[in-house]
């Protein structure tokens, strides 16, 4: 177990190196100087040099990389070009918002997809299965930025139904009910794209499980169909769904830009979007690195977690 963990983490090192190195190289790709925009009119070339020196952009890439890693290890991701505040502060403020949104979306998707997956598997080939199968392949083709409009049009529109506010945010620590009210539509928009994937995955795993002998054993005990489906078949069919859920959480954390910018939610995605528009390179850099690290770590954890949930694998 520990050996496995060690090996997985070791395999991460080269990937993390490339990720961080690539983001450090980002400023070199900028046309002109990354700090040029900070200067007011009438500034001298010397001002530019000073600023570049201050932010360390006058050094060579390897030097910058080593300095960056050194700072990053102590939790220092540099300063925003716009606000001159530590990048890390912004990230720690925004990360929980995005995390909440991602977790909320994941839960929503699972709550809808699990019963659907079980149901379609139990009725495989029947009408319910075909209708849901058709709907889910349609849903799979709706990009998030389209489902956002559909949801807002129907559920946050004074002309249709004003169940939710179209934009805005309240922190969960301040007012839970309000927070949910704001978070519901964005999370649903994120969840919609995941539902068909989860449903299909669970359906096909369930179909395989339902062919197993132990299902026949359970049925021969006189247990009801729903008991057999949910208590006997679901758990052994859900390992890949759990794995994929873990991976999805990582993807969602990195995939909230559209939803956050449309609904004006102060999360990582919106921060990144604003930083891009403002050419605030250090913020972009910091956010990308944090998201990539979270993403990679989550993937690795899921890999390891997989062996924890299956008693058959756990025994080894």
């Amino acid at each position: 177990m520990l050996r496995l963990l060690g090996r997985k983490l070791l395999a991460l090192i080269p990937v993390l190196f490339l990720v961080t190195f690539a983001t450090t190289a980002l400023p070199d790709l900028v046309d002109g100087s990354p700090v040029a925009q900070m200067l007011g009119p009438g500034s001298t070339p010397q001002d530019l040099k000073d600023l570049e020196h201050e932010f360390g952009y006058d050094k060579s890439l390897p030097v910058r990389y080593v300095t960056w890693v050194g700072h990053a290890l102590t939790g220092d991701l540099g300063e925003s070009l716009k606000t001159r505040t530590p990048v890390m502060d912004g990230i720690t403020e925004r990360f929980p918002v995005t995390l909440e949104l991602a977790v909320f979306a994941l839960l929503m998707a699972l709550i809808v997809a699990v019963p659907l997956g079980v149901w379609t598997a139990a009725k495989a080939g029947g009408r319910v299965d075909r209708v849901i199968g058709g709907l889910s392949s349609g849903l799979l083709s709706i990009p998030t930025f389209v489902s956002v409009f559909i949801l807002v049009y129907f559920f946050a529109n004074p002309n249709m139904m004003l169940a939710f506010k179209p934009t805005g945010w309240e922190y969960i620590s301040v007012d839970f009910a309000k927070n949910i009210e704001f978070a519901f539509l964005p999370a649903l928009a994120l969840a919609l794209a995941e539902i068909p994937q989860f449903q299909r995955l669970l359906r096909s795993d369930m179909l395989a499980t339902l062919q197993e002998d132990f299902i026949l054993t359970a049925r021969s005990k006189g247990l009801s169909t729903s008991y057999v489906l949910f208590r006997h078949a679901l758990r052994p069919s859900s390992f890949s769904l759990l794995t994929v859920s873990g991976l999805t959480l990582g993807r969602l954390i990195g995939g909230t830009v559209i939803v956050e910018s449309y609904f004006a939610i102060p999360g990582l995605g919106q921060g990144m979007y604003q930083a891009i528009n403002g050419k605030d390179i250090p913020v972009v850099q910091g956010t990308v690195v944090v998201i990539a690290i979270v993403y990679v770590l989550l993937n690795t954890l899921v890999d390891i977690g997989y062996s924890l949930i299956d008693p058959r694998v756990r025994a080894r």
């Binding site: 002998d213 026949l216 054993t217 005990k221 006189g222 006997h232 052994p236 299956d310 008693p311």
Partner: peptide
């Protein structure tokens, strides 16, 4: 029928390796 299955008529299947639920 389910009130009879497992209650008045019970069955033992062929392969003990696969006829028990592995995760329960």
């Amino acid at each position: 029928a389910r009130t009879i299955w497992g209650n008045r008529i019970a069955m033992v299947f062929q392969d003990p390796m696969t006829s028990l639920n592995p995760v329960l």
